[in-house]
Write a protein that binds this DNA or RNA. Structure first.
Lengths: 145, 145
DNA sequence: TATTGTTATACTCTATAACTATA
DNA sequence: TATAGTTATAGAGTATAACAATA
C-alpha cells in the first residue's frame, strides 16, 4: 500500500536529521570563529535579557552545576557578569557586558548569514518554512520565568 | 519599509534556531533512553552500512583521533566491531554487530516517533516541509567515499 | 526545611601532536 | 614518504552528590 508518492516516514526523518546535522555543523563553525563553544554561544544568545543561572540551565538542557563553569569562562573573558537578584539574594542574574553585547549581536548576525536556509531558499520558500516552524514550535516553553 | 508582513530575517532565524534547539533536545533525550551519547548515536545511525573510521570522523565533524574512543566504547558494549579492509590494511572498517543493528533500528524509530514534526504537523504539511528540506540540503555531501 | 548556586568527582568529547603500522 | 589509526594530553561539557548561603 505504498502508492501515490506518499511521503515515507523514514524519508522525512532522514531529511530532518540531515537538516539538523547541517544546522549543527553551521552553528559550530560560526561559534569557532568567535572562539566560543556551542554552549557558551547559546548562553550569550539567551542573554539578550538578563537571566538567572537556573533558567539558563533549563534553557541549555543541562544540570545547573554546569552553568557555573560556563559562566566562569564567559566572565573571565569579560563577556558577562554576575549580580545577585535584590529580592532573593540566592539567585544570581547573568547579564552581558558591553563587550558581550557586541559579540552576541555579531554572533547572531553571523549565524543568520551562515545558515543554509538563507543560501538555498527563496523569500517565498522561507515564508512557508517559517509558517511550518511556527506550528512545529507551538507547544514549546519560554526562557526566563 | 517594513510593510506587507514580509518575513523579518531575524524572525526566521529565531524560528530556525528554536526548531534546531528542539530537535537537539529531542535527539539527546532519546539517546539517553539507550544510554548513548549523541556522538555514539550518530555513529550507530551512520553505520547502516560499514564505514572507515576516517569517513566517520568527517561525518561526525570531529578529528579522526576522537573516533578511536567513540569506537572503543561502542565496541566494549558489543554494538560494533572493527575489521581491517582487505585491499588496504591501514583502514579499519566499523560495522554493526547483530545487537548493534537492533539498537540502531530501535533508536532510529524512537527518534522518528519523538520528533516534534510527527506530533505537530499534518501529513500535507510534512510533505511541504520535506520539499523545503530537500532544497535546503541540495549542496550537501555524502558519507562513505 | 527548601532552594540557588558552588565545589568535587568521574566520564565523554574535543583538538593537537607524537607515534605505529601499512602503503 | 604519505596515510589510517592510536595514544597522550589538556580543556570543555556532562550528571551526581555534598556543601554554603539565603529564604
Amino acid at each position: 500500500m505504498e502508492t501515490r508518492g506518499r511521503l515515507g516516514v523514514h524519508e522525512l526523518a532522514g531529511l530532518i536529521m540531515g537538516a539538523s546535522e547541517d544546522m549543527r555543523g553551521s552553528f559550530e563553525e560560526v561559534c569557532g570563529r568567535y572562539e566560543l563553544t556551542p554552549q557558551q554561544a547559546r548562553t550569550l544568545l539567551a542573554l539578550k535579557e538578563e537571566a538567572p543561572m537556573r533558567s539558563l540551565a533549563s534553557h541549555l538542557r543541562c544540570d545547573p552545576s554546569n552553568v557555573t563553569g560556563i559562566a566562569d569562562r564567559l566572565e573571565a573573558r569579560g563577556l558577562i557578569h554576575r549580580a545577585p537578584r535584590e529580592e532573593d539574594r540566592r539567585v544570581k542574574l547573568l547579564a552581558l557586558t558591553e563587550q558581550g553585547g557586541k559579540v552576541r549581536d555579531e554572533l547572531e548576525q553571523s549565524l543568520i548569514n551562515a545558515s543554509p536556509v538563507m543560501a538555498n531558499l527563496s523569500e517565498d520558500e522561507r515564508e512557508t518554512l517559517a509558517e511550518l516552524l511556527r506550528k512545529l514550535l507551538l507547544p514549546t516553553g519560554e526562557l526566563h520565568r
